[in-house]
Design a protein around this nucleic acid. Sequence first.
DNA 1: GCTCCAATTCAACGAATGTTGAATGATGGA
DNA 2: TCCATCATTCAACATTCGTTGAATTGGAGC
Lengths: 235, 235
Amino acid sequence: MPTPSRPRGPKPIRMDPDRILDAAQEVFARDGLRAASLRAIAKQAGCDPALIYYHFDSKEAMFTALLARRFPPILQELEVVAAPEDPRSTAFRLWEVVRIYHRHLKADPGIRSLIRGEIVHGAEGLSDLIAARLRPIVMAIRSILDQGIARGDLRADLHSLLATFFLARMQLEILDLLPTVLPRLMGLPHDQAVETGLRAWFDLYWRGVARDPLAPLPPLPELAADPLAIKETRP
Amino acid sequence: MPTPSRPRGPKPIRMDPDRILDAAQEVFARDGLRAASLRAIAKQAGCDPALIYYHFDSKEAMFTALLARRFPPILQELEVVAAPEDPRSTAFRLWEVVRIYHRHLKADPGIRSLIRGEIVHGAEGLSDLIAARLRPIVMAIRSILDQGIARGDLRADLHSLLATFFLARMQLEILDLLPTVLPRLMGLPHDQAVETGLRAWFDLYWRGVARDPLAPLPPLPELAADPLAIKETRP
DNA sequence: GCTCCAATTCAACGAATGTTGAATGATGGA
DNA sequence: TCCATCATTCAACATTCGTTGAATTGGAGC
């Protein structure tokens, strides 16, 4: 009788549930959200599929844990920018929103799929959970827009909820599509596609929401610049 | 031995392959693209799953047939609007693009999913096919923007390819999301969500691309208005 | 050193999926 | 009228999926 390749029982190195979530994130990025199976995730993590059920109640609970890990840091950063006391210009703050989104979502296509709602069909409870996580994020961005209207930086007739939807949603599309589309259609290097697309988008968006669309934008920091080192330089 | 519920052999009414495509479209709309199984489509069409394999080579071939049915009419209408001789204003023509998209895609979430690329993972050949169908559509819209730049209606520094991407992509999101999101967040009636969202989006977009963003938009026809009855009324 | 618990693996289940081959009845042409 | 072809159904296949129960082992605590 051949000995099994690996005996049962605990390994010398315990499997941290976070490592399973890391593996899930990688498989989502590689195979897409719907096609990511527990077996593929287990293989990526280097463990047995059944172990995932030891650490999480179900596949859906694993999604939930992924959400719980990703969303609070985003919300925390957004709430700093959305604080009514923030003295920086509305254009600068909105660009900060873009940068925060970019920083947290660029390396995680799986969470982008979750936000986009690709998993909504057939998992209604999960959909409610995502909506609950997303709502304060939307409200933080919206409050920046409302403050901008009140300060006279933005159009008085702006529909802040729809404008929030437009800003956040287009960024998801840019992060997912432009890195594969732009290099093929233009000669653009792969790693510049997102920066180019996001700046073009923000330029268009700002003219669309600003009270004075022809006034030049303030200098905007690069996407990947250190968030703490940035101070707005008023022209 | 019990007689089978329905004997074999051809039914009195033959199954038109188009009816199978209709059923597929309905199932896509109900269950989403990925969750739509051949058995569900066959049930919707009222036939056996194996019959689908008689009319189409595979599930992917059925997608292809769906594409072949949907895209040419869209392209044909777009090319009329994109003709360089078209004398109407750039704003009016771009709104016509929005209306054409809306008219053809509003009742077919499955085709929107295909356009959005949700099926890309795991079906690379299909992805190429969609790209080939999509390219002339993108180019038609882009040529309207390029003509608008040449006529002096749009900003000279506009990136027409990215602007095309922004316009067409956001419309997909609006068609899919706003009917479920807007009624819940605002008091908006379900059937007005898309019209409200698309007008707000076009208003923002136009300010973003126009050379003179503060000039008022011309009166734009309703989304569902008869395309042939519309003549631009210059103010 | 013994015991107990936590962590891990194995094997299997039931359901769903895309697909295929054989069987069967109707239809239309010779 | 007969026969070939077309359209349809049935039953089954192999595969994959999420999930579960039992078996196994290493280490911590006494």
